[in-house]
């Protein structure tokens, strides 16, 4: 849920999605769902020479399970907040004041 929460804030930002088949797709993040399926717009594949079939593709939907990494734009990620969110996510319901 945390990653989902983070990705939600990154909509309309440029991200690079590295797939498990070594394809790296850079594009504008349009939407993401709870399965971390990702919809990208105006995409560009990193090594176009190796993947000529992707040249014509302008947008794509990526199933969350095939994603290896997502490179986030650091200027749009609040690291400290992310740390806090991680802390919250790890023990949210153990405390009576939360939840």
């Amino acid at each position: 849920m945390l990653i989902f929460s983070v990705f939600k804030t990154l909509t309309d930002q440029q991200v690079t999605v590295e797939l498990k088949n070594d394809l790296s797709i850079t594009g504008v993040l349009k939407s993401v769902d709870q399965f971390l399926n990702i919809r990208l717009d105006s995409i560009k594949v990193l090594d176009e020479a190796r993947h000529p079939h992707m040249m014509a593709v302008k947008n794509c939907f990526i199933r969350g399970s095939v994603v290896r990494y997502v490179q986030l734009p650091s200027e749009h990620v609040d690291t400290q907040l992310l740390e806090d969110a991680t802390r919250r996510g790890s023990s949210p319901r153990s405390h009576p004041f939360i939840g």
Binding site: M1, L2, F4, S5, V6, K8, T9, Q34, D78, L81, L82, D84, A85, R88, G89, P92, R93, I98, G99
Partner: peptide, 22 residues
């Protein structure tokens, strides 16, 4: 019902606070 929680700050902390900060 799967997505909605009574405490968005707990489950969707990052997006909530980030949005607020933004």
């Amino acid at each position: 019902s799967q997505l909605v929680t009574p405490d968005p700050y707990a489950d969707d902390f990052y997006a909530q606070v980030y949005g607020a900060i933004l």
